[in-house]
Design a protein around this nucleic acid. Sequence first.
DNA 1: TGCTTTTTGTTCATCCTTGTACAATCATGT
DNA 2: ACATGATTGTACAAGGATGAACAAAAAGCA
Lengths: 161, 161
Amino acid sequence: MNKKQVSNEHHHFPWDHPRFRSWIAVARACQLMQQTLTRRLAHLDIKPPHLDILINLYRFDGITQQELARKLLVGRSNMSMLLPQLEKRGLIERRGDARDKRILRLSLTAAGRVLTEEAMEIQTALIDDSHGGAPIEDCMKIAESMERMIAVLLKEDRELS
Amino acid sequence: MNKKQVSNEHHHFPWDHPRFRSWIAVARACQLMQQTLTRRLAHLDIKPPHLDILINLYRFDGITQQELARKLLVGRSNMSMLLPQLEKRGLIERRGDARDKRILRLSLTAAGRVLTEEAMEIQTALIDDSHGGAPIEDCMKIAESMERMIAVLLKEDRELS
DNA sequence: TGCTTTTTGTTCATCCTTGTACAATCATGT
DNA sequence: ACATGATTGTACAAGGATGAACAAAAAGCA
């Protein structure tokens, strides 16, 4: 009659575990969010990965490619593929560092800043839309859970390197 | 001194909005989860997309490629690329339907079922690990929030078609 | 100083994902 | 029955992400 008995029955399928079901929902929501954001950004001719980059350049002017890749949880080679595109479009600038000639410091151009602000408004509008007026406290709770998970998973990452 | 005054100041940057910060955390957690799962599944020679397919075949035997693609929120062409691989490896079977010759009905082979069970254990273990003993009620609350978002975003999807 | 190791960014091959165009089959309406 | 439109799966080209191999530059150390 207690919890242990109930959970020791035959139905040990993953989708019967609350945590599993919950995580599947999170993953699907992320997926849908990406797809919807892709559609809403289409007229600006950028995609979510580009926006991630632009937002970080907006916040952290002069960041390096390495730091940027680490923040976005992607490989350095990914930045090497995407950043030249944004540079050619005149949205960002890459300047070599005087002290360390390996480093390229990134910053937004005026045009890049304008486009980033426009895109960020689209993203925040989408986030507000999709949350459908859910209470802020729920968001805070979710953020805490997610940040705990991120910490755990990042620790596993470090240990492998 | 009240909340309204505080939030009406100059700092209308997205990352000052609780919902925005919360969603970024969700997205990053998903990303990390995928990467970690990829590593933990490597020795089975499958990746998260394959596991998604296998789990759905495990649950819904005889599903069609179309239905599978819809459940996974991916395009039909994606299934056309991945399923032949799994079929060649002897993990799944594709049989034509008698009544509707367009349809291919999918099912797991014995080997596929074994591998799926093994992979599902890895995934549930990872989910449990990463949640670090967080209370089940929190997971349920998160699941509810995410499912509400999914409903909203899916509705926008339908309206576009 | 000179040698080794580490860090930073690029290049390349590979795979995943998408969208479009297409062929086959079915459903619908006349 | 027959023409039209919808649905299902495939083929192909294009773009994004990854990891490994690589060159240049810096840091550590004898």
